[in-house]
Design a binder for these strands. Structure first.
Lengths: 188, 188
DNA sequence: ACCACCATGTAAACGGTTACATGATTAC
DNA sequence: GTAATCATGTAACCGTTTACATGGTGGT
């Protein structure tokens, strides 16, 4: 499964331009599948070439032409076939956790900074997920979309909570103090 | 940050062969950073070429020569420099969640099967994380390693719990029933 | 003035996955 | 006999990331 498949998926929700598809990626798939223009535009070109989407150019004043893509019946079939055949992988690649794993090689202040950054980073992502499920045209939201959103909220919430609750002890330990000593230091 | 950095990291724990490094990836980094032989062996070759590790061949009976890699002072410095400069990203790429998002396009039995598979998949991963932190030579385990393990346990535990608790409702909804109807169906 | 938004695309670089290639040992 | 473990490596392929290229509109 690649960006092409996700583009077909977005187009099941209605006709879209490449730009709009990118926005949809950020709204809906942000927490589990990333894609930039550099992968979306070539994907759309390839899907057009294969006849899985059609493309209609719309003239605009003072802007480049819009290209509105639509899913073809063949495209819908290709999407379903691919989804049915895709094994359910779930990969995490976390430079953050690598950094934490080797925290004893970093300055303690850096460890403190990184953990703070991550907690701050996840908060708006979780809010974005909730905003997406509470969107106005709630009738269009399928149960699986709620499921994916709930998953993101639960998992990122757990991540943020874990880091927030354990970062002080980690920084103290990396600074060569026991949690008790750190509590004393904090009490001064 | 790439596989090369992680190899340097593993070698801070002691001299290792490529094969042993791969095993260490599976024990310690499994839940946040994957790597196969196809990326580890070339990484080691490149690190040797750059003088960041040294390589000593050890003859073995009836097996290919072992190549034992050791971190050089330059390698340790390169590792620390890279860690300090690395922004703390945390990326998820989940074909599983894509499948869930588009669950309404799949046969309900397939949705049931996938969710079961995922719950079953995470259980041994969590056990592996716990085994790793409870290892015999516990003195060698740094606080950051415990932190990363605790994170994995918390987050994968939340993931497995969420899927396990919500999969029945999802399957019911995808099958075109309300949870109430599904409860009635289940009671028959 | 500057930044964000709208709008599309190309091309090189990078890095990881997968398949291939070899081959003995040990345990079920 | 079949699979797992030990042990190393190469090469093609694939897909993403990043940088580049262009340019008007609207808000602070």
């Amino acid at each position: 499964m690649d960006v092409k498949t996700l583009c077909l998926g977005v187009l099941t929700e209605g006709d879209r331009t490449g730009y709009e598809i990118k926005q949809r990626f950020e709204e809906a798939f942000n927490h589990f599948f990333g894609a930039g223009f550099g992968s979306i535009y070539p994907a759309l070109a390839e899907l057009t070439r294969r006849g899985l989407v059609t493309c209609e150019s719309v003239e605009q004043e003072k802007r480049p032409d819009k290209k509105v893509y639509s899913l073809t019946p063949a495209g819908r079939k290709a999407l379903v076939d691919e989804l049915v055949a895709t094994p359910p992988r779930h990969k995490v690649r976390s430079e953050f956790l690598v950094l934490m794993y080797f925290a004893h090689l970093l300055p303690p202040e850096r460890v403190a900074e990184i953990t703070e950054q991550m907690v701050a980073h996840w908060r708006p992502v979780i809010e974005g997920i909730e905003r997406c499920v509470l969107a106005s045209d709630a009738a269009e939201i399928q149960p699986g979309m709620r499921f994916a959103a709930g998953f993101g909220r639960a998992v990122l919430g757990a991540a943020a909570a874990y880091v927030d609750q354990n970062r002080h002890d980690l920084v103290a330990a990396v600074a060569g103090r026991t949690p008790d000593e750190a509590a004393l230091a904090a009490a001064e």
